[in-house]
Design a protein around this nucleic acid. Structure first.
Lengths: 193, 193
DNA sequence: CGATTCTTTGAAAACAGTCAATCTGTGTGG
DNA sequence: CCACACAGATTGACTGTTTTCAAAGAATCG
């Protein structure tokens, strides 16, 4: 079973080998082909999902039918829609695989049970929310106070791995500019060196 | 003592009168004058803060010395910097009062103690984080996919109360546009009716 | 009232979006 | 192995939006 996940959890919190086995025993290993969806708009998201391999994209479609990338997630990250997860309402997001991916799923109920059995897991779960909140708040500030070029540079520095693996027009969407604008930003930046 | 807070907590969760008294007993009532700071950049934020009266602004100063408003908070909201609170590191934000305000403070340790004594309070505390996360994520999406005018209209609809009480140039900062641009957006909108 | 803060205006420049066309690399089927 | 389709990236011309800077007008607090 997924060594990636075991290594991840050992790094994050102090968890015994038996606890880890117990956690693994309730996980549902899942494979996604390129282009396949983990979650589609309108469905309720009732899982925890750990990515042991691959690359997922979370996006939202606006009233004009345009797609907006909310985030990318790779190995050792968690995926899912917290809004739908916590509220129980249909999701406004979709999640699909940009690469062939391997996911570990836990049903919401199972994960809660495990969290109550294993304090370390609960601790990790709580940290996940707060770290997510902090990251989102910081991103909101950064987007609000920086130019498109600065945002792009920051993206390259923060997520070089993702930048290499994702098509440019999706990065543009993530940054909130058109693909043409991102092309021009790159040309400008290249000219300046 | 603050009836506002008692009413707030009763509305949010099922809490006994004795529990409420216990919670109140550890609170530190504080008054802020207009312009006074609750938190200054560089300080560590070690409190929970409930606003029973007034209006607070959270902002950040960027490398060029410019101020960016992150959020406003009025009666019945909580204020503070989650990043500094959870990490224990000096804050990158400041919080000041835009109106004479009345705040209830709990020291971090006291609030944790209370949360462990009173399940309803812990429940409220956890909900606060997740609701905050969801709201921030939705705002990030909205900002990324809408024009300045749409963002302004959405702000007016979502927070009419705040819009009435806050100067325009701070709303502009919150929305990520210059005050001149916001002025022009309003003129356009007025012309169209 | 006087000082300060807030809002509005105008003109020019910088920036980003749209549309249409072209270029590039990849992979598939004949 | 080639021709073709397809997705992604780039370019140019044009349009529209936002910023910047400078100045003036309105509102408000003490």
């Amino acid at each position: 079973m997924s060594d990636i996940f075991k290594r991840y959890l050992h790094e994050k919190v102090a968890v015994t080998e038996t606890a880890l086995e117990r956690i693994s025993s309730l996980s549902i290993p899942t494979k996604l082909r390129r282009g396949e969806h983990l979650l589609k708009e309108g469905e309720v998201w009732r899982y925890r999902a750990f990515i042991s391999k691959g690359l997922l994209r979370t996006y939202r479609t606006d009233d004009t039918g345009q797609i907006h990338v909310l985030r990318f997630a790779i190995e050792n990250w968690w995926a899912g829609d917290s809004e739908s997860y916590f509220s129980g309402k249909p999701s406004v997001c979709s999640i699909d695989a940009l690469e062939p991916s391997e996911i570990l799923l836990w049903k919401k109920d199972d994960f809660e049970t495990l969290s109550n059995e294993i304090p370390a897991l609960k601790e990790m779960r709580d940290k996940l929310v707060t770290r997510n909140l902090i990251a989102t708040q910081n991103r909101l500030f950064f987007d609000n106070s920086h130019t498109a070029e600065e945002k792009y540079r920051n993206f390259l520095e923060s997520y070089p791995e993702i930048a290499r693996r994702v098509p440019l027009h999706m990065i543009a969407s993530y940054l909130g500019v058109t693909r043409e604008t991102l092309t021009r930003i790159r040309r400008q930046a290249a000219k300046r060196r």
